[in-house]
Design a protein around this nucleic acid. Structure first.
Length: 943
RNA sequence: GCUCGGGUGGUGGAACUGGUAGACACGCAGGACUUAAAAUCCUGUUCGCCUUAAAGCGAGUGCGGGUUCGAUUCCCGCCCCGAGUACCA
């Protein structure tokens, strides 16, 4: 602590952040200052943060970065006269609590509750203006009731391509009853039946249900899943990294399993199109575009030389079809065995065996090696009539497109390498292709050669001709292919939302809406059952109406977060009503105006949320096509680790001596992480170090300039690296306002940066100087009533405009600097005038809400009214200057400044500049070649 | 490989539409106050050269070119760092 505060003569009056902050936080809570109403004449503004998973470790200084930015924005918008919805909650279902439960037997609900309490305490200390009355917790039955309800709506819907939206499953049944399956244009499974209306009516009820399941937007499907035996669960593709689970790093294998899925692919195109209409960072949109992976091309059917079968391929370059010299199908392709001739079966079998042995990792690492095997069979090019050999190779993926490609070695480098390796023909197809014997040339320029009826045409001309021909022959058609898969929607886990489904005759049925929520049952252990069923299999007597079995898997982590922003729209009273949010509230708040969060959610949460939002819109429950109008990614705060250097003796053993960073070159040393909290400005606190670990108690040091300097490295912030900085400690020492300002001062919001507490003193000093503007030398509150000078008005209005501009473009760091400049200027001017200071208090309020509330009250305003005061009006007249110090540059190099009246026109300036004695020195008697005068900006003399 | 960011003093960073590069802050150095320390205040601080000093000169925003009276900013080529993604047909 600062000894300064111990001086009894001043202790009562200097900036007492602890008391001030505690009082105001209490005041805001007692008066529900930030409680927001759904009925208001003011325009609405919705500022949302990505809600946290309440982990056991609590918040570190990286977490609140985005929350501080959004809070500044929310407070600013209130001052600008908006009715601001700024809520917070918890994504409280999740693996860590369950893992902890497995280890300790503690119910996840209990640990989650404790963690939430810690988070809440930490959040409250920072002075956020959240409306806590609207808090949500995804693990609360009153909340997940509605997650389950949305699941039911998805189950009861199908995607009608004609209307291009989701509609009720009843309408599909109607169509089947009227016209059978023929006229239905739907996004569905691939194995749907073809039937007439009469045939439909003759189906048994179970057969009907089985068929409808192929259309429902959430459906059961045998899928190949990423099965993680160690976790006893299925993981989504984005939860698997390099063949191991992202969480825990356990091995993952492919396994077939009945799984709930979400037909997100139905929305692929709308998810892609929608990106153009929203104000999101370009990299993030790009990630979603890549994830959706739309390719426009054609599907082409290559009949086999022998037999009835054919191979369908997808290509984005149907124009290269005359350059096809072989086909390649995936080793897992269903036709492989029938295609393989006895002569080649040994080779094919060996190759398949090889492929199976390769892990996902090996296949990736091995991208350069060419491998494959010939099946012995041939297919016929439908346009040229040529016979082309069919190969298998593991570079063709069974899961993408049709699992088969037409290979064009002259146009595709991968095909080229394959052709070279196995000595297959390389056919040039465009006259603009260069040297196709040497490498592939994927150009679309020039005119076709060796290409039958498209010879002489350009790319643009050839495509429609080819598509038409293929359709005429029944050999293909234009096709759009997506990379995105349907999302698997089940986890073999305990701590998640139960799926509101029971089974009868092996078919899934929804429970009744009035039976929601389906409460998560108690279990004796949080592990899979002996028979390998999910933990819910342990629940005693957990049966629908006492007989039917419930679904035993639970919903994935993203279920509860895919719609939570709508629950916030429901006030506490609204939550009694029978909807996830009242229609009137949704009509008022509409969508999120500003969403701040990390880019790690680019393809998970943000894509699923957009999907559910579009679905809810199709059904008329919400009104906007896109949920998050503007999105900002805050950068990650990295850790900044400190190291001490332990001297190693001749035998290679660590000694008890530690050498300062600058001198470590003279010794053999090993670096040891040291807690950053006992290091200041990279200088180690020796006494604290000795008590840091018992084995350091008798440590000796080799110092430089009397100090021990630590080494530095930027790493992830984590306990094991001793580089975690807790906001509680910062607040204890400097207060929340300093923390808020400093987190912003650190640099641009969107940039990742290491946390370094070194500069915080500067921000703290700023707040004390700001406080001092309102106090005399005896630290008594004192402002004067006089009319401010022009310079004083100018300093104020400069900051009024600057902060406005900065906040609108999310440049919070530059505002903090500008506040410092403003206070330095007012300090210089010895300004303590109410007319200046009162407005300055409002401008600073979003950034430092506590100190400004205190001063606002001291200025005699109604307590707590600052949050809803009016942001001061910028008056440009105060900025008008009549003189300007023109920078005079010679040949583009700045040489001097010349004070000139701003009323002067270019010609006058020119004259005055050339007459100036200093300028003459540079001219050295010569006449300048050119003289550029930009009024109010610069003068450049070219010699 | 592809896509998207980014590269500016000892450090974090500023320079918004092509117009004074290094604001603001940290650190460091020196000084004032003090018995002393802390706190506070003042001065200096891009680098190099020159000078007792004042001042002056030169270089400078990853590297190499270009456009321009003028480039951290625009264009071309390259290097490095970070993120995402991948035999995607």
């Amino acid at each position: 602590m600062n000894l300064y505060f111990r001086n009894p003569s001043i202790i009562t009056m200097d900036y007492q952040f602890k008391e001030i902050e505690k009082n105001w936080q209490q005041f805001w809570a007692d008066n529900e200052t930030y409680k927001v109403d759904n009925n208001s004449d003011k325009p609405k503004y919705y500022v949302l943060d990505m809600f946290p998973y309440p982990s056991g470790a609590g918040l570190h200084v990286g977490h609140p970065l985005g929350y501080i930015a959004s809070d500044i924005f929310a407070r600013y918008k209130r001052l600008k006269g908006y009715n601001v919805l700024h809520p917070m909650g918890y994504d409280s279902f999740g693996l860590p609590a369950e893992q902890y439960a497995i280890q300790t037997g503690q119910h996840p609900a209990v640990t989650t509750e404790e963690n939430i309490a810690t988070y809440r305490r930490q959040l409250d200390q920072i002075g956020f203006s959240f409306d806590w009355s609207r808090e949500v917790r995804t693990s609360d039955p009153e909340y997940y009731k509605w997650t389950q309800w949305i699941f039911m709506q998805l189950f009861n819907s199908w995607y009608n391509l004609e209307a291009d939206r989701a509609v009720s499953i009843e309408s599909l049944v109607e169509q089947f009853e009227k016209n059978g399956s023929s006229a239905v244009k739907a996004v569905s499974d691939e194995d749907t039946l073809v039937f007439s209306a009469d045939e439909w009516k003759s189906f048994s009820e179970n057969a009907k249900q089985e068929e409808l399941l192929k259309y429902r937007l959430t459906f059961l499907k045998e899928s190949t899943v990423n099965w993680c035996p160690a976790l006893g669960t299925v993981l989504a593709n984005d939860e698997v990294k390099d063949g191991v689970s992202e969480r825990g790093g356990f091995p993952v294998e492919q396994k077939k399993m009945m799984q709930w899925s979400m037909r997100i692919t139905a929305y692929a195109d709308r998810l892609l199109q929608g990106l153009d209409a929203i104000d999101w960072p370009e990299p993030l949109k790009e990630m979603q575009r890549n994830w959706i992976g739309k390719s426009t091309g054609a599907s082409v059917i290559f009949p086999l030389e022998k037999g009835e079968n054919s191979i369908e391929v997808f290509t984005t370059r149907v124009d290269t079809i005359f350059g096809v010299s072989f086909l390649v199908i995936a080793p897992e392709h269903e036709l492989v065995s029938s295609l393989t001739t006895p002569e080649y079966s040994a080779g094919i079998e060996t190759y398949i065996a090889q492929t199976k042995k390769k892990s996902e990792l090996d296949r990736m690492a091995d991208a350069k090696t060419v491998s494959g095997a010939f099946t012995g069979s041939y297919a016929i090019n439908p346009l040229s009539g040529e016979k082309v050999p069919v190969w298998i190779a593991d570079y063709v993926l069974a899961g993408y497109g049709t699992g088969a490609v037409m290979a064009v070695p002259s146009g595709d480098q991968r095909d080229y390498l394959f052709a070279k390796h196995f000595d297959l023909p390389i056919i040039q197809i465009l006259d603009a292709q260069k040297d196709v014997e040497h490498e592939a040339d994927a150009t679309k320029e020039g005119r076709y050669v060796n290409s039958g009826f498209i010879n002489g045409l350009t790319y643009q001309e050839a495509i429609p001709v080819l598509i038409e021909k293929l359709q005429e022959l029944g050999a293909g058609k234009a096709k759009i292919q997506y990379r995105m898969r349907d999302a698997i929607f089940g986890r073999q886990r305990y701590w998640g939302e139960p799926v509101p489904v029971y089974f009868k005759d092996g078919l899934p049925h929804l429970i009744e809406e009035n039976e929601l929520p389906l409460i998560l049952p108690e279990v004796d252990k949080y592990l899979p059952t002996e028979s390998g069923e999910p933990p819910l299999g342990r629940a005693k007597d957990w049966l629908y109406k006492g007989e039917a079995h419930y679904e035993l898997s639970t919903m994935p982590g993203w279920a509860g977060s895919s719609w939570y922003w709508y629950r916030y729209m429901a006030s506490q009273a609204d939550r009694e009503s029978n909807s996830f949010a009242p229609k009137s509230a949704i009509e008022y708040w509409k969508d999120v105006d500003l969403y701040i969060g990390g880019s790690e959610h680019a393809t998970g949460h943000l894509l699923y949320s957009r999907f559910w939002n579009k679905f809810l819109k199709d059904l008329g429950y919400v009104i906007e096509e896109e949920p998050f109008k503007k999105l900002i990614n805050q950068g990650m705060i990295q850790g900044r680790s400190n190291f001490v250097y332990r001297v190693i003796d001749e035998e290679g053993k660590g000694t008890n001596t530690f050498v300062s960073y600058g001198l470590k070159g003279q010794y053999k040393t090993s670096a040891v992480h040291v807690d950053v909290n006992i290091v200041e400005n990279d200088v180690l606190d020796l006494e604290k170090f000795k008590s840091f670990r018992p084995d350091f108690a008798n440590a000796e040091f080799v110092l430089e300039n009397g100090r021990y300097v630590c080494g530095v490295e930027v790493e992830k912030m984590s306990k094991s690296k001793f580089n975690v900085v807790n906001p509680d400690d910062i607040i204890e020492r400097y207060g929340a306002d300093t923390l808020r300002l400093y987190e912003m001062f650190l640099g641009p919001l969107e940039q990742s940066k290491p946390w370094n507490t070194n500069g915080i003193e500067g921000v703290f000093k700023f707040l004390r100087k700001f406080w001092k503007l309102f106090h005399n030398d005896k630290f008594e509150f004192e402002v004067s009533e006089g009319e401010p000078t022009k310079a004083e008005y100018k300093a104020l209005h400069k900051i009024i405009r600057k902060v406005e501009e900065d906040i609108e473009r999310f440049s919070f760091n530059t505002s903090v600097s500008s506040f410092m400049i403003c206070v330095n200027e007012l300090n210089e001017l010895k300004c303590n005038k109410r007319k200046i200071l009162q407005e300055l208090v409002i401008v600073l309020a979003p950034y430092a809400p506590h100190i400004t509330e205190e001063l606002w009250a001291l200025l005699g305003n109604e307590k707590g009214s600052l949050s809803y005061a009016a942001y001061p009006q910028f008056i440009p007249e105060y900025m008008v200057e009549d003189e300007f110090a023109y920078p005079i540059s010679v040949n583009g190099k700045m040489r001097m400044n010349l004070n000139l009246s701003l009323s002067l026109e270019a010609a006058d300036i020119e004259k005055l500049v050339l007459e100036n004695a200093d300028v003459q020195k540079y001219l050295d008697g010569k006449t300048p070649k050119k003289l550029i005068v930009v009024k109010g900006r610069i003068v450049n003399i070219v010699i």
